[in-house]
């Protein structure tokens, strides 16, 4: 059974999500109303998936994502955002989230998304794919930074154009699994890209002097 933790400061919304997940046979092991509670309950609850609202009282969803990913690299974070603000969603994905859904998504979409991220596969919207593409197309990229392969770019473009994995697999004559692997690898590279940026930032500021 998939162990899920729901983090949202809106009680009405939290209850609705919890009920939907429980009815579908998932195990809601913990709920939290803010970042502090989430981080306090996370180690004992040992969820497989965290369904996380970005706009929560401090520490915010992005910081929570970064911290849980640090503690447990296998954790899957599905971000639910009401506003879908580009910069926030992108920051959460860079911090380690592997799925993103707007809150108005239906019950079925939510359940499918939780199951997908639990299985280790990313949940992308076309909007998020467009942003991720944008990150790799920026000017002044360091040649040492991870780049997307042609195939990965092609797949990501198709996701951004609204094609489903099934359709992409058909068009490129690939298996569904391979398409998912490509998408997953773009996310990994984006997170790596972020780490390269952070490291460079640290070196520039002389933060690496001691350890």
């Amino acid at each position: 059974m998939i162990r899920v933790m729901v983090v949202d400061d809106h009680p009405m919304w939290r209850d609705a999500v919890e009920r939907d997940l429980a009815q579908a046979g998932l195990d809601v092991v913990a709920v939290a109303a803010n970042g502090r509670e989430a981080l306090a309950r996370f180690p004992a609850a040992r969820p497989d998936v965290i369904v996380l609202d970005l706009q929560i009282p401090a520490p915010n969803g992005i910081e929570v994502t970064a911290e849980v990913a640090r503690q447990n690299p296998d954790i899957r974070v599905l971000v639910l955002s009401a506003s879908g603000e580009h910069t926030d969603v992108l920051a959460a994905v860079k911090a380690g989230a592997t799925g993103y859904l707007v809150k108005s998504a239906s019950r079925e979409e939510l359940l499918a998304a939780v199951r997908t991220v639990a299985a280790g596969d990313p949940v992308f919207t076309p909007g998020l794919a467009g942003m991720v593409l944008g990150e790799f197309q920026q000017t002044g990229q360091d040649p040492n930074e991870p780049r997307l392969t042609e195939r990965e770019t092609e797949v990501l473009k198709m996701v951004a154009k609204g094609l489903e994995y099934r359709q992409i697999a058909e068009r490129l004559v690939l298996s569904h699994r391979t398409v998912q692997n490509h998408v997953q690898s773009t996310l990994r590279k984006l997170q790596m890209h972020n780490r390269v940026e952070l490291t460079r930032y640290a070196i520039e500021r002389g933060l690496d002097a001691d350890d």
């Binding site: 809106h10 009405m12 108005s104």
Partner: peptide
């Protein structure tokens, strides 16, 4: 503004979701 918008969006999303069901 963000906090207010976020609250409004949450409610609108919930109404939409429950309404559909």
């Amino acid at each position: 503004g963000r906090a207010v918008h976020d609250g409004v969006l949450q409610v609108l999303a919930l109404v939409q979701r429950r309404g559909r069901e």
